[in-house]
Amino acid sequence: MTEYLTKYRKYILECLEDENCDFAKLLDYHSEKLRHFQHERFIHLIVLVLFALCTVITILAVAIYNKLTLIPLAALFMVLLVPYIKHYFFLENTVQLLYKDYDAIYKKVHGFSQEDLK
């Protein structure tokens, strides 16, 4: 997903620089893609929260019940949680950049954007 999002954003930026682009079609296409990316981000948020809860529960079980056999599981959760958080933040930040790209495309189609309304 990281590579796909990076390539997609690069494509959108190239389209924004091309004055021969059909921005109305690009706006429709980008809106559809944005919905997919929002869904992907939401699913990853749910999984991240559940994974973090499992990590916390496992650490609490080790601390409260002195279940030393769960230490490897807690360590595994911690090791896996860090890259997952990193990936989620990449999704979050990239989707926010895509919102700005949407505003730029919208301005090319309709002649105004959110910043113009202030």
Rank of each mutant, 00 (worst) to 15 (best):
K108V: 00
Y84M: 12
H110L: 13
L70P: 05
P83H: 09
C21M: 14
L68F: 06
Y29T: 15
N66E: 03
L70G: 00
D116M: 07
S113R: 02
V62L: 00
I71C: 00
K67H: 03
L34C: 10
V82D: 05
K7H: 09
T55Q: 06
A61D: 09
L68R: 09
F77A: 02
K86Y: 13
E92W: 03
P83V: 07
H39A: 14
D101E: 12
V79S: 01
E115T: 04
A74E: 01
K118D: 07
Y29W: 06
A74F: 07
I12A: 13
K108H: 11
F112I: 09
Y11A: 10
H44L: 08
K67S: 03
Y88I: 06
I12Q: 08
T6N: 14
R41D: 11
E3W: 12
T69I: 11
H110K: 00
Y102Q: 05
N93R: 13
Y106E: 08
K108R: 04
I12P: 05
V95C: 04
I64C: 00
K67R: 04
L81A: 13
Q96D: 13
A104N: 06
M78N: 08
L60D: 09
E19V: 08
V47E: 12
N66V: 04
R41A: 07
K7N: 13
A75F: 10
Q114P: 01
Y65W: 07
L16A: 14
H87W: 09
K33D: 10
E32W: 12
K10P: 02
C54L: 14
I46P: 00
K7E: 08
L45F: 15
T6H: 02
S31C: 10
E14L: 09
Y4N: 15
P83F: 15
T69P: 00
E14T: 09
Y8P: 06
F112G: 05
K33M: 15
V47A: 13
T55I: 04
Y99Q: 12
K86S: 07
Q38I: 11
N93K: 13
I12K: 07
A75C: 01
V49T: 07
Q114D: 03
L48R: 00
F89V: 01
H44P: 02
P83W: 13
M78F: 05
E115L: 00
H30R: 04
T55M: 02
I105G: 00
D101H: 03
Y102G: 00
L50R: 08
L117G: 01
D101I: 04
R9F: 14
R41Y: 09
P72M: 01
V82E: 04
C15E: 12
L81M: 06
H110Y: 15
F112Y: 09
S113C: 01
Y106Q: 11
A52G: 03
L13H: 09
S113P: 01
F90Q: 10
L91E: 02
F51R: 05
H110G: 09
N66W: 01
L60Q: 05
V62K: 08
H110A: 10
E32P: 12
K33Y: 14
L53H: 06
E14N: 15
L97C: 00
C54D: 03
G111Y: 10
V62M: 12
L27T: 14
T2G: 03
L27K: 05
V95N: 06
R9D: 10
H87P: 01
V56E: 00
